[in-house]
């Protein structure tokens, strides 16, 4: 059965490779998008304007998965082993790296509509920095901030606001495009609601990623 399956999949992909041509219709929608949205980064325009409806579902996928991982893990034992072997130089550098990643997060989410970047990238950058700090220096110290800054409440609030703003943009597209075209092309404040959405998505993604990875780290050694 397995052998037949392998032959089948090989033939499927051979047929696919032989049958398509990539030089079909090449669309150039960039002019139209930049004209109406009036921000330089066309990917952000597509992500948060023309296909905002997809993005709402994407945010929901992320929130559901984070909570689902937490709820599925609830019955499994937590690893209480607290001693962590650390290495001096790495500890020093990872602290600096975490600070750097916070700065990079702010830059990427605020300038997401002008330079490469955006909410999702920013959130991942921040989560990577903090998780690296937790793994190399002290996981306990790194996980204190989650309760201290009330990230869970912040996450819920940003989910609500993202949903509200997206609904507004979808229901009243004309108002938002007037807001966008009033500003000067390429400045930080030219994005209308886009930078706000980027910041909120960044927070949301950071909270979800941190939650998932800390659940995995808390159950280390079980697999």
């Amino acid at each position: 059965m397995k052998i037949a399956g392998i032959i089948a999949v090989t033939m499927i992909f051979v047929i696919v490779m032989l049958s398509f041509d990539s030089s079909g219709n090449i669309p150039r929608p960039i002019e139209q998008i930049v004209d109406r949205v009036n921000v330089p980064n066309a990917v952000t325009s597509v992500y948060l304007e023309t296909r905002l409806y997809d993005t709402i579902f994407e945010i929901i996928v992320f929130s559901i998965t984070a909570l689902g991982v937490a709820s599925l893990f609830a019955s499994l034992p937590v690893n209480r082993d607290e001693d962590q072997h650390v290495f001096g130089t790495v500890t020093v550098y990872s602290g600096g790296l975490a600070a750097l990643s916070i700065t990079l997060f702010l830059y990427v989410v605020i300038n997401g509509h002008i330079t490469p970047g955006g909410g999702f990238v920013g959130g991942v950058v921040l989560a990577t920095g903090v998780i690296t700090y937790g793994l190399t220096s002290s996981f306990k110290k790194a996980s204190v901030h989650y309760d201290k800054l009330k990230i869970e409440i912040l996450e819920n609030i940003s989910l609500m606001i993202i949903f509200a703003f997206s609904t507004l943009i979808i229901l009243f597209p004309e108002t938002h495009s007037q807001l966008l075209s009033a500003a000067s092309f390429g400045s930080t404040f030219s994005g209308g609601l886009i930078p706000i959405l980027n910041i909120l998505i960044g927070i949301k993604v950071y909270a979800g990623a941190w939650k998932m990875s800390s659940e995995f780290i808390n159950r280390r050694g079980t697999l």
Binding site: I26, P27, R28, P29, I30, I33, A42, V43, T44, S45, V46, Y47, R51, D54, T55, F57, E58, V61, F62, I64, T65, G68, V69, L72, F73, L76, G118, F120, M212, F216, R219, T222, L223
Partner: peptide
């Protein structure tokens, strides 16, 4: 072309979510 790049961000998020969930099931 910005459209495939923008839509595949969604695809990346979904594959990340699937990876996390499948690892959780494997651990259970």
């Amino acid at each position: 072309d910005p459209i495939p790049q923008a839509v595949i961000i969604t695809g990346i998020v979904i594959s990340f979510a699937l990876l996390c969930l499948s690892l959780v099931f494997a651990i259970i």
